[in-house]
């Protein structure tokens, strides 16, 4: 019995802290984060990989967490927007988005923040085209793309 529990445990680093969970085999990382790890900052907009509201960084790469099975995350480094509260780059991104009026209903913002943060770590000075390409997976129904792109281009 003890052995079985051991096998089902998945350990990863979440926002800098070690974390172990015992997920169902078909459980998505989004469910795990929201229901088992208390990460209310990761939003569920569609549960089918279309909206990007659930975006987290896994080993620095921004991915929709609703498309990732938790069992596949063993040993990963997972970062959600809440984990970036004191990260200087993320603060600058958040401030720039807010100042540009690109945070409207805010439901997309946590995902956008992760996407932008991961982009800047790979591409320090992205041009507008690159930024819109990178943001393609993050829907903003409030229509703030242009404001986001403008704000992020100003940071590069």
């Amino acid at each position: 019995m003890a052995n079985r529990i051991q096998q089902n445990m998945v350990a990863f680093v979440l926002n800098g802290r070690p974390f172990s969970v015992a997920p169902d085999p078909d459980e998505t990382l989004l469910e795990t984060l929201r229901q088992r790890c208390g990460c209310a900052d990761v939003k569920k907009g569609c549960d089918e990989g279309a909206c990007g509201a659930c975006t987290v960084a896994i080993d620095d790469v921004a991915v929709p967490s609703c498309l990732v099975l938790t069992v596949a995350c063993a040993g990963s480094r997972i970062v959600t927007s809440a984990g970036l509260a004191t990260d200087p780059l993320a603060r600058r991104i958040g401030a720039a988005l807010a100042e540009a009026g690109a945070v409207q209903c805010g439901f997309c913002t946590a995902g956008v923040l992760i996407t932008a943060w991961s982009m800047f770590r790979r591409i320090p000075s992205p041009d507008r085209d690159t930024i819109s390409r990178e943001l393609t997976g993050n829907l903003c129904r409030c229509g703030g793309y242009d404001l986001m792109v403008e704000a992020l281009a100003g940071l590069g």
Binding site: E48, A50, C51, G143, V149
Partner: peptide, 17 residues
């Protein structure tokens, strides 16, 4: 009945506004 199929504008569909 899904976001993927419904297809709202993305950052790539963005015209100059």
């Amino acid at each position: 009945v899904g976001m993927l199929d419904y297809g709202v504008p993305t950052a790539r569909d963005l015209p100059r506004i």
